[in-house]
Write a protein that binds this DNA or RNA. Sequence first.
DNA 1: AGCTTGATTGTTTAA
DNA 2: TTAAACAATCAAGCT
Length: 661
Amino acid sequence: MDLNFYSDLTDGTGQHDADPEFLDPHAFNGFDSDSKFPGGSENYLSIPGSGHPFLSSSETFHTPSLGDEEFEIPPISLDPDSALTVSDVVSHFGELSDAGGSDGVVVPGNAVVEGDDPSFAAPYVGAPSQGLEHLTLGVMNQSGGSALLGSSLGMDLGHPIGSQFSSSSPVTIDVPLGDMGQGLLGSNQLTTIDQSELSAQLGLGLGGGNMLQRPQSPENPLSATASPTSSLQDDDMDDFRRSVLVESPVSLAVSPGVISLDPSMSESPISASTSSVSSAVGRKGAAAGGGGGGKKGRKKKDPNEPQKPVSAYALFFRDTQAAIKGQNPNATFGEVSKIVASMWDSLGEEQKQVYKRKNEAAKKEYLKALSEYRANKNSQAPIEVMETEPSPPPAAPAPPPVVTQASTSNPRPSRSQHYNPEENTITNICTSNIILDLPHVTTRSRTGAKPPAPAPSPAPNPPTVTKIIIKQMLLPSGGMSITSTTASSPRQPPPLQQMQNTPPPPRLQQAPPPLQAKPRGGGAAAATAPPPLQIKVVPSSRQQDSGTPIIVTAAGDAGNTLTSPSGVTVEVGQPDAVVMAGEEVAEAEEGMEVEVNVTPGPSVTAAQAPNICVRAGCNKPAVESEDWDKEYCSNECVATHCRDVFMAWCAIRGSNSTTVT
DNA sequence: AGCTTGATTGTTTAA
DNA sequence: TTAAACAATCAAGCT
């Protein structure tokens, strides 16, 4: 794969001139054909294109090679309500991927597969239309992770921060997507997911913290659902604030991770979705199962009966799967499940505790509701709704003497409205960090590193368990430092172990020594664990911020200053490493500090406007809020600011070969 | 055993 | 007859 191909894609500013080639499906195809994984990954990363709030409605993606499919993308909404949810982000990514590759999404997959290139590319940068290239690029460069982040951010902001990320991602998650389906190749299937993104989406990082702080709401014991479009609540904002990004100094230890999808899977038509595959495989007896009224089997449940609280793990699953799916739309349930399990294992006690608390709260609510329900049932008398709140009646059409359930008693009204992933605010994106390491990356030669040890037969790799270590640290200021390390396969050492402040999960303990200990080229994991990159985000508009810069630690090489349209400036201290074809980027992965200055487009100095919204490009007067110290004018800006910061970070990471001034 | 997701499929019910 | 609604199934892993 020619990485240089992409280098052109990014200009320092992240703006891309309309390059016909970008949009030219044929061009893409050509590229694709050249890729190692020709047939492959078309399906990967493709997401059936539903609109995404982040995208402008005016923008339409045309699938490069395959498609004639048009993806209508809803207007980008910066409104916290619709734009800032994790799920949104995830879906967004997915869509992007899809758009980029849709039919031909293959490209991404291929890239990923090839995945040797540690470089980060933001799949999407800047305007969606432009993004096509980027998208592909990002994917191709494999480190999907950061790329994804970047893309999402870019999308959202519409900031074309172009980037090519030569910087290798310290951590990668190789997810074997084995047995995807009959049509799939026997080869291993890798899924690449940006750990950062994952974590962000998962809300592992911030979400957890947030959750901890947030008492379970009676009405939402399980953080019930929410449509992707649901809005970011004040609570979320609160979480957001606490989590950092914005006002408090944040230290992020980022280990870029990637989940690479094996292109081989792409053999199957896009249409074959993950689920379909699994369902097809698993579907034995529709006959047995089917049945609209379910005449057989299960006893009917009283719709009014309180729902049992889901377990902590289930809650976590809900949070996580969306992100994983977003990254790997084609991932099967089993694969996702494995990843989630690994992540769960890697989850710190604190984080688990968050979910457990939720579960506990839900249990209490459940018991309460149950007792009420039973009481009502026994009385047989129609009972008044327990007011609490004019809760919309659960789904129950309410047969005769129905006892309307108090909203509090029903954590989960309907399956479609499950847990609200939005609890994981966008903030998470900024701070989260996950490293997923899934074994079996036969084809993958990250930074020349070979997959560790006993890789039996490359061909039918038995799906291995993925280990993920996620660490989070709450900063005194409320900021959070998250360090994720993955102890992927048992044979792989947990990277960044030193950063872990919490005892490794059981599984992890079995894992080999920290990644750092490993020689650079020593193994896939090792290769992927470059020194941290530090990004300081210093809102120039606020003096007070100078003291509390956001520091993002990540690996990467750069040497550029990137300025996003919104005014986010990223300064990279070190010259970027040359983009090396494929896997030799490891050497470029030198630790470095990158300072990212987020400054408002229009020069607004603190002196001039002490109370101006901190967000770059926003000149509105900051307002007083519990969630922020008069730093922002609105929740929206808080969220946007966060994204900016992240974009900057992504840009830095991606600015490898491209020199930007 | 039940829960997580989601596509699929069969049954039931209503129009 | 058709469409819609509903329920069951399956995957892997956890509680």
